[in-house]
Simulated assay, not measured.
Amino acid sequence: PGIAQKAADNIQQKFPGLEISSYHGYLSTSEEKDLKTVLKELQPRLILVGLGVPRQEFWIQQNRHLCPNSIWIGVGGSFDIWSGIKERAPEFFCKYHLEWLYRLYQEPWRWRRMLALPEFAIKVLLKGTGN
């Protein structure tokens, strides 16, 4: 709790006219129900979900019907970066799209969760082809 709001505050400073609502991922059942009601009412254009892989993808899949015209994006640990809690990977890793590898190096206990990424990518590709 607090990281998503800090990220929202930092983004709001850079883009003052932007309207941002922020919720953390540690909601009780009743709080999650309230969030779903708010989403249905607001119908935001963009919804960023940072619950980690694969939890955020499952949450998006289960709830995207609430805002069918919205763009839903799983952003993983991006809120940590945007909030200032963590720094981005060095330029080399960013340039070659290897930020995930740098993060794995920093947090080796995440290796099991990283295994879900190829499986998810394959499922997305197969669904896109109609299989």
Rank of each mutant, 00 (worst) to 15 (best):
L125F: 12
W59A: 07
W111A: 12
Q106I: 06
E19A: 14
E87W: 07
D9S: 11
I60L: 01
P16N: 05
C94M: 13
S30I: 11
P118N: 11
R55P: 00
A121C: 15
I81E: 08
Y23G: 09
F120I: 13
Q43T: 04
E31R: 00
T129L: 15
E91K: 12
Y102V: 06
C67Q: 01
L101F: 15
N10D: 11
I11P: 09
D80H: 02
Q61L: 05
N63W: 00
T37K: 07
H65R: 04
I85E: 15
I60E: 01
E32V: 02
L125K: 08
G77E: 06
G74Q: 01
S21Y: 12
T29K: 04
A116R: 02
L18V: 14
P118A: 13
K36P: 02
Q62E: 15
E57V: 02
P1L: 05
E32I: 01
N131G: 04
W111V: 13
E87F: 11
K33G: 06
I20V: 03
Y96G: 10
H65Q: 10
Q43E: 03
D34F: 02
S22H: 04
D80N: 10
W59I: 10
L46F: 07
S70N: 03
K33Q: 11
P68S: 13
K36E: 08
H65N: 09
I20C: 09
R112L: 04
Q56F: 03
K33V: 11
Y26E: 14
S21A: 07
Q13H: 09
G84T: 08
Y26G: 11
R88E: 15
M114T: 11
E87I: 08
S70K: 07
G74T: 03
Q61P: 00
Y102G: 09
K123P: 00
Q5T: 14
V124H: 02
Q5M: 11
L35F: 07
L42C: 09
E119A: 14
P68G: 06
A8Y: 08
Q5G: 14
D34V: 06
T129R: 10
L27Q: 12
L115H: 07
V75K: 01
I81A: 07
F15Y: 15
I73C: 10
V53I: 14
S83I: 10
Q56H: 04
E31D: 15
H97A: 15
E32F: 01
V38M: 05
D80W: 00
L115K: 07
A4T: 14
V49D: 01
F79G: 09
L39A: 09
I3Y: 03
W59Q: 04
P16A: 07
I3T: 12
L98K: 08
W100P: 08
D80Y: 01
Q106F: 04
M114L: 15
G130Y: 04
R112M: 03
L125P: 00
P68H: 05
T129Q: 12
F93W: 15
F120P: 00
